[in-house]
Amino acid sequence: MSFSTMLMQLSSGMVKTTGIFFWTIILSLPLGLFVSFGRMSKNPVLKNIVKIYISLMRGTPLMLQLMMVYYFPYLLFGMNIRTFRFPAIIIGFTINYAAYFAEIFRSGIESMPVGQYEAAKLLGYSKSQTFIKIILPQVIKRILPSITNEVITLVKDTSLAFSLAYMEMFTVAKQIVAKDATFTPFIVAAVFYYVFNFVVAFVMEHFEKKLSYYR
């Protein structure tokens, strides 16, 4: 296979890799926030359900979770899962990453001094105003470095979609390697992941700088 054909093939994989990445980020960050609310809930039933969920997501391999999500509708309901490959990957990544993000949100929210809530209460802010205007912006600043870590891990974790034979870049690279018996596709893949993460780190650093106007 010529180098340009290989790049063509890999780039179609890159688009899919990037798709997994952005869908997961878009869905798992808000979900993670709501999960963290559940984790901090005063309702013991909800709190414990969320605790079990987080513990399962963090305690089992992501690859296994992806396969479970994909085969779940068939195993349980005997449903035909032919069109379910891509949704399964997005769901799998989202519920896994939401669990990690939830714990990060929780650590950030719980680290906020109680005085901020009290000051907001005295000024008459409602609970949701307090959270959205006062607490959340400060939480985001506090947790941004941890979020960056997870996001970088996600870029690399997208390659686990190969376990569902989704044609993201790593799967394509493996197939070309099998055919041509050369390591070049892996090197291209490595460069892609590195550059992707370089951009992610750059963007996140930029956000951190934007938020560094206060302590």
């Binding site: 093939q9 179609s12 688009v15 899919k16 798709g19 990445f21 952005f22 869908w23 980020i25």
Partner: peptide, 22 residues
């Protein structure tokens, strides 16, 4: 996000995609 998200979704849902293997 939208651009990539849509393109990823688009390519996986269009059965009339090009003959490329992926």
């Amino acid at each position: 996000c939208l651009a990539f998200g849509v393109s990823a979704c688009g390519s996986s849902s269009s059965s009339s995609a090009s003959g490329s293997a992926a």
